[in-house]
Design a protein around this nucleic acid. Structure first.
Length: 177
DNA sequence: GCCAACGTTGGC
DNA sequence: GCCAACGTTGGC
């Protein structure tokens, strides 16, 4: 096989620089992004088509966006904190990481008084609707497949709202649908 | 609504 | 730098 596809870089586990980052080689990367459907659902995305992914306030998730996500990458939209959590559809990264303005908005639930406009702490990307999966792939179903044992989503106590998915995992999940 | 798991904060 | 307290996430 020719060429380096990706370089895995593990940095600190907690705090400002937390994250495990796939720096890109020649190929796209795959992601999973959680959203509570009462806040923003696949239906909302299908309607608006493109949206800024505001409100990420976790360093590890931020670092995945900043260091790993590139325009054209694909991501699963996952519904969390709802009756049937699961993967609902596919979206595309339409714009790479840039400052999330809600961190400076005192009226926003995502306001962060400690973030300075000249040194923004929180970033977001834009995502674009690609398609809905033919059926939802539920969390319970994902757990039944050995092939997905390493999926970050399935690790005990997982709370990351943005996480990488390997190419193999991506293809396997798509084949389930 | 409960609660386990986890990240962050802040006192020392 | 440690660690207890606290707040949040998210499945069930």
């Amino acid at each position: 096989m020719a060429g380096i596809i990706a370089e895995l870089v593990v940095v600190e586990r907690h705090g400002e620089n937390a994250g495990t980052v796939w720096r890109r080689g020649s190929r796209m990367s795959y992601w999973l992004m959680k959203s509570e459907p009462t806040v923003f659902s696949i239906d909302d995305l299908a309607r608006v088509r493109v949206t800024p992914w505001e409100g990420v306030r976790n360093y590890q998730a931020r670092n995945f966006m900043r260091d790993g996500m590139r325009k054209g990458d694909l991501a699963f939209l996952y519904h969390s904190s709802c009756e049937v959590p699961g993967i609902m559809g596919v979206m595309e990264i339409g714009r790479e990481a840039y400052p999330d303005p809600s961190q400076f908005d005192p009226g926003s639930p995502y306001f962060d008084p400690a973030s300075r406009p000249d040194d923004p702490r929180w970033l977001m990307v834009d995502v674009r609707y690609r398609r809905r999966l033919p059926r939802a792939i539920t969390l319970a179903e994902l757990r039944t497949h050995r092939e997905l044992a390493a999926l970050a989503l399935l690790r005990r106590g997982n709370r990351l709202s943005i996480m990488p998915v390997t190419g193999k995992q991506w293809q396997f999940i798509l084949a389930l649908a």
